[in-house]
Every structure is written in C-alpha cells, then in structure tokens.
Design a protein around this nucleic acid. Structure first.
Length: 357
DNA sequence: AATCCGGGGCT
DNA sequence: AGCCCAGGATT
C-alpha cells in the first residue's frame, strides 16, 4: 500500500505537469472560491465556466450578492440546474453580512453553518483559501481512493461517508492541503475517470489495488438500489390442427434477443387473460375462432439484474388458428422444440408440458 | 437512510 | 437508457 507521503509527493508532481485552465484556478479570494465551488457542485467544469465568469462579473463581492434581488441571481443561474444553490448563495451572503460582519468566515466549522455549504465545500474553501488541513471528499476523491486502496465501501451511506472522510484525511498532505486537494480532484477528473481510466499512463498503476487486481470497473462500489422494472409476459401455447406448436424468434433489442418464444403479450401491469376476446383486444398477432377456449397453465417469476419477469402461461384450445396467426410465427412439432433456444423461463415450462403428454 | 433537486456529457 | 458529475437540504 502506498504511503501518504509518497502519494502526496507523486500527486503534487503530477499536478504540476498537468495544469488545468479554468478561471478559478489559483483564486485566493474566498468569495470567488465559494462561488466556484457551489457552481461546480454536481456540475462539470466545462459547463460551469461561463456561469462562473458571468456571476462574478455581476456579483463581484459578498455585499453585491447580498444586496441583489433573488430574481437577478436566479436569472444568472438560468439553465445551470439545482436552483436551490442560487437561493442558498443569496441567503448565505446575507448571513455573512449580518452574522460575520461582512468578513468571510475562515474556519471549516463556520463555513459549515452557511446555507448551501456542506462538508465538501467547507473543506474546499478552507483549504483553498487558507490552506486549512481538511481533506475534500467528492466523487473524484472517492473514486481515486477506492481504486488505489481497494476500498469496497459505499460512500452513499452514513458509515461509508465517515470512513472515506477518515481515510481521505489520513492521506491529506497537511502542509499543502490546498494544492493536494486540488491535485487529487484533478487527478480523478483527468486520469482516474469513472469509465476507461488512463491506467497505462498512470503514475500510480504499480501502487493501485484496482489496477493490480484487475477490478477497476468494480470500484468504487455503489450499492445504489437499481430501479427494478417489472414486466408481465403472457405466453400462449398454441397447437394447430396438425399438432404443431407456434413459436417466434425474439428480434427486438431486449432481453433474450434471438432466442425463441411462444406467442406472447407483454403488459406493464399485473393481470390475467380470462377470455379469448380480452386476448384479441390486447394483440393483433393471432385471432381465434369463436369456439376457442383459454386455459391458465400457471405462472412463474424470473429475476434479472434490472428486471423482474413475471411469466404467465396459457393453453389455447382451438380448432382453426392456422390462417389467423401472423407469418413471423412458425409451427414446429413438439419433438422438435428441443432444437430451438428458449429462455429458461420457457424451456422449463415446455419440458413440463411435453413430459406430461 | 432515503429522496429530491437539473442539466449535460458519456457509453 | 442508465450512469456520473468539485453535493446539500429535506423528510
């Protein structure tokens, strides 16, 4: 594991040879640093650049900002998103005038009391402006440390946040807090990017846990709950007068692409088809004679990474469907079904059906 | 601890 | 279509 001292030395060295050109680089006015930090919250530098320059031009000081109307501040923020940031800036500017007598707060703790300034921004402003030994922890830092040290901790939890702040501070170069904080974030943005980081040209590749263990794309870990999509697929076991089964190849860009399936109707909500007419209402793929009957053959659920497939099986007893089913379907003899690739959700069902016969 | 806030860039 | 971004406030 790389020592904090070595890490900082190499990082600051890297920073010198990889300068970034943005209007807030090297800025020492805490007011301007503050504005830049808030603009850059969840916002890419390239996107925030012009907003920063316009904002500083229009509101060059804390007093100018405090005296402005909320409308004029929001107008300056138009199109940037997260508009509470603009309203909080206004609120905090007035706080600075009243509670801090117009003097910009210097300490991490004082900065935290301002609306719109959280742990990250307080650390950033106090270290950039005053070289206070507080480590910033943003998405870049989480990513760099996760990969370098192999930290399998989810930052988006209370405990994970504490752990990352602790580790980040243990690696912080306290003599050069501002430069170090700048450097590690730049490094994350330019070299150790979320996707396809430039490991081949990375000065830390020999020290990097993720690179050495080939798990760059696994770190940082995020246990973010994926929004589960529920799908309801109704499969119809259709037999024609020759005793053949209707099947169909899935061609859409979707799960089970190029696999075969029974004639199906997908619904987004849970339901059950109880009559021929309800089926014909839901699809134009097949039509049935009036004496047909539908019979429920049970159901099953399959969980995929992002989806939950609820399958219902129906058997259609009918006499004349041959000419009333669309040509993308074909009919195969039951004994030939094994020659086609069905998803598991269907192959299990088909095996049961055939074995019962 | 989970949810919301927003627009843009990327694969 | 999802994931991510120099996060923080609210519930």
């Amino acid at each position: 594991m790389i020592t904090p001292k070595t890490f900082s030395k190499k990082l600051l060295q890297w920073s010198k040879s990889n300068p970034r050109d943005y209007p807030w680089i090297g800025e020492k006015d805490p007011y301007k640093i503050w504005i830049s930090e808030v603009i850059l919250q969840q916002t890419r530098s390239e996107q925030g650049k012009n907003y920063y320059e316009n904002f500083i031009k229009k509101f060059p000081t804390v007093r100018a900002l405090a005296d402005a109307t909320e409308d004029s501040i929001l107008h300056c923020w138009k199109g940037l998103g997260y508009y509470s940031r603009a309203r909080n800036l206004h609120h905090a500017a007035k706080t600075i005038l009243v509670k801090f007598q117009g003097k910009f707060p210097k300490s991490y703790e004082e900065l935290l009391t301002l609306k719109g300034i959280g742990e990250y921004s307080a650390a950033a402003i106090s270290s950039f402006a005053y070289n206070s030994p507080k480590a910033v922890v943003d998405g870049n830092v989480v990513r760099v440390l996760s990969r370098m040290l192999g930290m399998e901790i989810d930052f988006h939890t209370s405990a994970g946040k504490l752990k990352f702040i602790e580790i980040a501070n243990s690696y912080l170069d306290k003599e050069n807090a501002g430069a170090y904080n700048q450097a590690i974030m730049n490094f994350g943005a330019v070299q150790c990017m979320p996707r396809q980081p430039d490991c081949l040209n990375c000065i830390f590749s020999q020290n990097c846990f993720a690179y050495q263990n080939n798990c760059i794309d696994k770190l940082p870990v995020r246990n973010k709950k994926i929004t589960l999509k529920r799908r309801y697929i109704h499969y119809f076991y259709l037999v024609n007068s020759k005793g053949e089964i209707a099947i169909h190849q899935r061609v859409k860009k979707d799960i089970w692409q190029k696999l075969y399936e029974l004639p199906a109707i997908e619904t987004s909500k849970k339901m059950e088809f109880k009559s021929i007419s309800s089926i014909e209402k839901a699809t134009d793929l097949f039509r049935f004679s009036r004496n047909s009957r539908v019979e429920n053959y049970g159901k099953t659920v399959q969980k995929l990474s992002h989806q939950e497939i609820h399958a219902s099986y129906y058997c259609l007893k009918t006499t004349h469907i041959d000419s009333k089913i669309k040509p993308e379907f074909c009919f195969v003899k039951p004994e030939n079904l094994v020659n086609f690739a069905f998803p598991k959700i269907l192959s299990t069902f088909l095996e049961n059906i055939i074995n019962k016969k």
